[in-house]
Design a protein around this nucleic acid. Structure first.
Lengths: 114, 114
DNA sequence: AAAAACAATAGACCTTTGTCCACGGTTTGA
DNA sequence: TCAAACCGTGGACAAAGGTCTATTGTTTTT
């Protein structure tokens, strides 16, 4: 599929898709190298983009995402991928904990101000 | 206390404290307006700064923090403050949920790649 | 075939969140 | 008293994450 379709389906703007691509988060092929230079995306790009959107909301950086994408590439060591992803999971859990603490603080503030 | 002491106690740099102050997160008084223009901070600034640090780690923006600070100011309506803080708590919970989803996705990816 | 819609690239621009620096005053300890 | 340590201001700089525009080329639609 072309970028417009992918953008529409994923809810991620064309510019952002190209930005992600420049940053190694997704890849495309040239759909027809003789006539145009349009990017062509496989269906799994859509899944990735949806993941990226959620992950960004969860506070992961583009660099984080790239390291996951890279580690899980076909060519890569399965154990390495596992380690990288495991590490990111740990970081996410820490962040979730931190959020919990902040919620606590705010709830205390609320009840303390009664 | 002066900015250096506050910085040292809070672990927040002087520059960042001034930055926060410019952005309405904390306030100071002029310790001795005749001789110098040094800022003077009350003890509760330390508590705020510690909260800010945790909240930033949790993904809250400086603007978020400012709205909390403003709403909870003495002069403000108690109910308004409650509403603002409640809203921020909701947002934090949403973020925590989002993190949970991302963790799920990553764990699936891990077990799916076996 | 002509217009409308879509795509590519390069580069400018924007916001957020700080950090660093230079320059000039103020305090403080030896 | 004199240097070291501290403080203030203003402004430059930076990195991240996009967004927008201009220009040009390709498809599609009518």
């Amino acid at each position: 599929m072309r970028i417009g379709e992918l953008a529409q389906k994923s809810g991620v703007s064309r510019d952002t898709i190209r930005f992600y691509e420049r940053n190694g988060l997704i890849t495309s092929t040239d759909e027809d190298s003789e006539t145009n230079s349009y990017r062509n995306y496989k269906d799994d790009c859509l899944v990735w983009l949806q993941f990226f959107t959620g992950a960004r909301e969860a506070g992961m950086s583009v660099a984080d995402l790239r390291s996951i994408v890279e580690a899980t590439a076909e060519s890569c060591d399965r154990d390495l991928a596992r380690a990288v992803v495991q590490r990111k999971i740990e970081e996410l859990k820490e962040r979730a904990d931190q959020i919990g603490k902040v919620i606590q603080f705010l709830e205390n503030a609320l009840s303390g101000s009664k």
